[in-house]
Amino acid sequence: MGNLTINGLYQSFDRDDGTHLDVLNNLHLEVHDKEFVCILGASGCGKTTLLRLIAGLDQAKSGSIVLDGEEIGGPNPKVGFVFQEYSLFPWRNVIDNVAFGLEMRGVPKEERYATAKKYLDLVSLVQFSTSFPAELSGGMRQRVAVARALALDPVLLLMDEPFGALDAQTRNMLQKELLGIWEKTQKTIIFITHSVDEAVYLADRAIVLSPHAGRICREIPITLPRPRDRTSVEFAELRRDILDLISRT
């Protein structure tokens, strides 16, 4: 399962002068099992803040985040996270990075290597098992990061602009690959992006956060059949609508 319910979420940061900066204000969001949701919005609208709260990396001032009936109170093995920057441990080779979570869980070496291999196979990087992250390209590193997050078999996968630093071609390729992985593994995915194109290509539903109010400005279901054609008229129309919406907020 992977049903997420967010209710009345409020988060603010304390400024040095004693005032508060409201980042999220009374935010409600419902994400269903196996759904692919993209969160869009201008920089500073609280996208990353929201994702970090869902991950349990930060604590909200008020409101609740419930995953499959369980309140999120801290980092949770049911939630996987792929970071925006390169987050692979540079002192571990690829397979030991992917197997890290299993190692922490006390899974014996052979078993965790077998699982790690399975997920490396999913991102087609098995032949790089013994390479170190420094030897991989940016796209390959993010694929390993996806495999590492999946290795613990979370129900919910959070992705914070994971392809933001990559070139357009690699990005498109990884988007396609991610959809394949999503279909195979049946995870619920919440994906943050700046790119409307990326959201329209990937998501079942695009959620646009408004920049100052700190709440959801609009939810747009995307029902185009997959694989989606970026050059089709429907794709272009959706993209324009969402872009308009973002620039108006």
Binding site: A55, L57, G74, P75, P77, V79, G80, F81, F83, E85, S87, L88, F89, F100, G101, M104, R105, R148, A149, L152
Partner: peptide, 17 residues
């Protein structure tokens, strides 16, 4: 910080670990 947070997300949460 990202390494520490990545570790936490992968179930490495105790200070000692």
């Amino acid at each position: 910080r990202i390494y520490v947070e990545a570790g936490k997300m992968l179930g490495c949460t105790k200070s000692r670990d």
